[in-house]
Design a protein around this nucleic acid. Structure first.
Lengths: 212, 212
DNA sequence: TAGATTGTTAATCGATTAACAATC
DNA sequence: TAGATTGTTAATCGATTAACAATC
């Protein structure tokens, strides 16, 4: 980790894919890999892989390639996965519960600290040993507990309100599942998961493939 | 809808966003909008909007702009949302259930035709009036029922097997939630929702914003 | 008509790919 | 050493933005 140079979003969006493939290679007991071979597996050019990695440092060795475990660890650090994050989920419907139940996240240093919902019928129920709290207590909770990531799983019409609460309690990272674009100051990072958009794109592409 | 010209994926991935904003404008009873005004709201340049739309036809009028309802309808047709799609969901865990329960999809012409799971404890249970079927009956189901879209919500290690079943039963559109890249022939469209990737990107971006 | 705004062509910008000297 | 493969510079490709004639 180093090299104080601007890294384009296109590169960053490929990092998780490198991380995933390197993890699979480790599971298959592969020790080393060249950019050509990794490119074949991922479906990128070897140039792109070397270009991408060079944004963050020099991780390879001429004539040898990359050490899989080392590179995996480097990308882990670049992504910031070596740290611990407290996550609060707002909205305990299907998507909120899906995120809360996703085993992988806990293993990777994301700890679900609290779950909130508006519906009195679910408040008090436990999901994965975490009690669902009343959404009206979100503000108070955040005043008393440090949280790093807020996950918005409420309907569109409540999403901006929830976002505002998170922001005023100093949360800088928001993972938004509501089908709306939230407004927030520049220092806040918002990553959207717009499921409907994704389904529409699938629909378009599958229809046009049949023709063209 | 027309213009037999190659449309880049970058353009296509913006279409759902146009569609969403136009829907909101309709709800606000806005009749017409210029590319400049729409650009301000979405956060694109007006050039980009005109350039994008021109891939599909001439939907505006000089000196006037675009009729909101007309353009909304045009994009609806371009995306293919005017048709009906039968959707099968494989994996009735949290994500599978979240997709099944998402109200919007039904309204938009996607009909959840069947749900499958491997776990005997959930087979037979109803989700939204749809019984969860045994995954061993998937092949047979698809032989007897037409399905257009398959949603893969099973763990990574089963995802390729499920994918293969869908493909051999002539499903051309696959919405994949498993954290793996599926292999499939060229005529199959796969749209991935890699939640972990998205969370990693959020993590990276929020960490670097604090510094840079 | 005069003003506004499109659709499109040309210019710019950025991202990807190719090539290769450096070197393990 | 000879072969392999990196990191980086240069060339290419594609996507975005700017400009403007056409025209409602």
């Amino acid at each position: 980790m180093s090299k104080a140079k601007y890294v384009s979003l296109a590169v960053i969006r490929r990092l998780p894919k490198y991380y995933r493939y390197l993890g699979e290679l480790m599971n298959s007991d592969v020790d080393r890999i060249s950019s050509v071979e990794l490119g074949k597996q991922i479906g990128f050019t070897s140039s792109q892989i070397r270009q991408d990695l060079s944004c963050f440092g020099e991780f390879g060795q001429q004539g040898y390639g990359y050490n899989v475990a080392d590179l995996y660890h480097e990308i882990n650090c670049i992504l910031g996965l070596s740290k611990q994050y407290n996550v609060v989920i707002i909205g305990a419907g299907n998507i909120g519960q899906a995120v809360a139940n996703y085993h992988g996240f806990n293993k990777m240093g994301y700890s679900i600290a609290a779950l909130f919902d508006k519906n009195p019928k679910v408040v008090g129920i436990n999901i994965k040993d975490i009690e669902i709290r009343d959404i009206d207590t979100l503000d108070e909770y955040l005043i008393n507990n440090e949280a790093h990531i807020g996950v918005i799983c409420v309907p569109s019409n409540n999403a901006q309100d929830v976002c505002d609460i998170l922001i005023r309690n100093n949360i800088k990272a928001i993972w938004n599942f509501a089908p709306i674009d939230l407004s927030a100051p520049d220092d806040i990072t918002i990553e959207n998961v717009h499921l409907a958009d994704s389904l529409f794109i699938l629909t378009y592409l599958s229809n046009t493939k049949l023709i063209g």
